[in-house]
């Protein structure tokens, strides 16, 4: 199975994401923002960082990158797509996911180990977890507060589309402690914290992030 990892100008976490894909058991395929070809990948990861310098709004310019037009089409046809941190922001700007990510409520850049609860293990990227499982992975962002209108929030909650929630105090002002959401089909997932930095206890707060990368193999086997 081939998992594409996109590099935009300003992306930071593409190497870690690619390594997590490999440790998870799939083949990592590098994709460039200017590519007009998805290189026959079965799934795509939009990694964290500061694509296009976060100019205008986080993810606002990346949305119009040539490779994103292909990703948007493929995602609408059911291809699994995971956006982490800046990737989550790109997915919201692309309207593949509802809502938006805004400045952390306390204005501080956050960088810490964060406990989250997996609240939907039925998606392409969360099936390796138990429902309600708690994992500790890094949270590092400036614009991490998930915002949407009341109607959208009610829809996300009513349809079980919140896939992960922060445990304990709200770190960034996200509505309903939302750390990650999915689309109606469950193939597109956006997640603010970083599972790709938690695949090895030597370098991360845990190895529990690996579940996101093994889940995608389950999705393909089905």
């Amino acid at each position: 199975m081939r998992v594409g990892v996109i590099t935009f100008p300003g992306t930071l976490d593409d190497r870690d994401a690619a390594r997590a894909v490999v440790v998870g058991g799939a083949e990592a395929v590098s994709l460039w923002h200017g590519d007009a070809d998805l290189k026959n990948v079965d799934a795509v990861i939009l990694p964290g960082g500061f694509s296009y310098g976060d100019y205008l709004r986080c993810g606002a310019i990346s949305r119009f990158a040539p490779v994103m037009q292909l990703v948007i089409d493929a995602a609408n046809k059911g291809m699994p797509v995971l956006g982490i941190c800046n990737g989550f922001q790109v997915l919201c700007e692309s309207h593949l996911l509802p809502g938006a990510l805004t400045r952390n409520a306390d204005l501080h850049f956050l960088c810490r180990a964060q406990e989250i609860e997996i609240t939907n293990n039925q998606t392409a990227w969360t099936s390796s977890f138990q429902q309600g499982e708690k994992v500790v992975i890094p949270l590092k962002n400036m614009e991490g507060a998930f915002q949407c209108d009341d109607q959208t929030l009610a829809m996300l909650e009513g349809e079980g589309r919140v896939i992960a929630r922060y445990v304990g105090e709200n770190p960034n002002g996200s509505r309903n402690l939302i750390a990650g959401i999915t689309n109606a089909k469950g193939n597109v997932v956006g997640l603010m914290p970083h599972p790709e930095h938690a695949i090895d206890e030597l370098t991360g707060p845990s190895a529990q992030g690996l579940g996101f990368f093994t889940s995608i193999l389950n999705a393909m086997v089905k």
Binding site: T102, D106, L107, Q147, G173
Partner: peptide, 13 residues
């Protein structure tokens, strides 16, 4: 401008 109902931490600061 941010919509009135959206928290504006920069404005608050």
């Amino acid at each position: 401008m941010l919509k009135p109902e959206i928290l504006d931490p920069q404005g608050n600061a």
